[in-house]
Amino acid sequence: MDFEPKLVGFLCKWCSSAGADLAGVSRKNYPSNLIPITVNCSGRIDVSYVVRAFHDGADGVLISGCHPGDCHYNSGNYKAWRRVALLKHVLEEFGVNPDRVKLKWISATEGEKFAQTIKGFTSEIKELGPGPYNDARERE
């Protein structure tokens, strides 16, 4: 059977989650591989959430927030930006391909961009193959 990646997405409530909703109501087509989790702000996403996601069987993790300058809480997305930079550095040391983490700015009006992002990310991860803890899927 073809490898269907399991993706986890942390979307900020004010922009990206609304962008995902827009993609839905505009009936955009995109793969169903992403499990979206709404958080208040991309700055709320702990590095450990992402590591946990991989540990629990994710093959890729998307972090998405408001565009730079637009964060509802002013600077949360800049924090997320720096966290992701540090996280990728450490993930690589751990042996996990840093491309398994993607950071994207998606606003509430960008339903199309959301759909494209999920399409692109799904095929990138398909290319990379299963993540570090893929037994969860095999047990299903």
Binding site: G95, V96, P130
Partner: peptide, 9 residues
Amino acid sequence: IFGGKVEDG
């Protein structure tokens, strides 16, 4: 969480 080095895939 990882406990050490892991292998991608």
